[in-house]
């Protein structure tokens, strides 16, 4: 009995080692989005290209929709645009949420017309996957979605529930693994 006590340190160490081992194969920066399986947040925001048009939660509901948070300043977004465009051709409904570069936007003097020009050029060059783009003027919608940067994507079903989330670019492999099964399952 007395000797058993001396085995406590090695036991504690081995238990720790198990978790350290598991930890080696998971990315500590990969933090699950808190909004999964929750309704898409309410919002009222203008169109990026035409501020007279206004969108609300109803506009992302009704059909299975991929909401993509992006910006022209973001390099990774550039990378995923062509793949997203192919998804649109396959019949996936994609809605953009335009996320400004905060460093400039923080002081509220961004030139919208210049942004529109950049968006036009970039989409003409790399393909336009979006049905329309919501201009997240003060990034309130992004904050409600728990977005930490661009690009991020949310899969929203017709009832407006967020089913899947991806931080970073989506490519064929990730689409097939994380998003396609959900869409196919819903059908």
């Amino acid at each position: 009995m007395k000797n058993l006590r001396l085995f406590i340190p090695i036991g504690v160490f081995l238990l720790t080692a198990v978790f350290l081992y598991k930890g080696l194969f998971s990315d500590p920066t990969n933090i699950e989005n808190a909004n999964l399986e929750r309704p898409f947040p309410e919002f009222k925001l203008p169109d990026l290209m035409d501020p007279s048009i206004s969108y609300s939660k109803q506009d992302v509901m009704g059909d299975m929709t991929l909401v993509n948070v992006w910006g022209t300043w973001c390099v990774t977004c550039r990378v995923e645009l062509p793949f997203m465009t192919r998804l649109r051709q396959q019949g996936v409904r994609i809605v953009g949420v335009y996320y400004d570069n905060a460093a400039e936007a923080a002081f509220g003097n961004l030139d919208v017309s210049q942004t529109q020009q950049e968006v036009k050029e970039m989409l003409a060059q790399l393909g336009n996957p979006f049905q329309f783009n919501i201009y997240d003027v003060k990034r309130d919608l992004s904050l409600d979605l728990g977005v930490t940067g661009a690009p991020e994507s949310f899969l929203v079903n017709e009832k407006g529930i967020i089913l899947a989330h991806r931080r970073g670019a989506i490519d064929e492999r990730i689409w097939q693994k994380e998003f396609a099964p959900i869409i196919n399952g819903a059908k």
Partner: peptide
């Protein structure tokens, strides 16, 4: 993984030795 295995040998070994001998 390499360091973890090393930890298992060095720390695990020392603590096992401790458990056997310290009594």
């Amino acid at each position: 993984l390499f360091i973890l295995i090393y930890l298992l040998i060095v720390i695990g070994g020392a603590l096992t030795l401790y458990a056997m001998r310290a009594s």
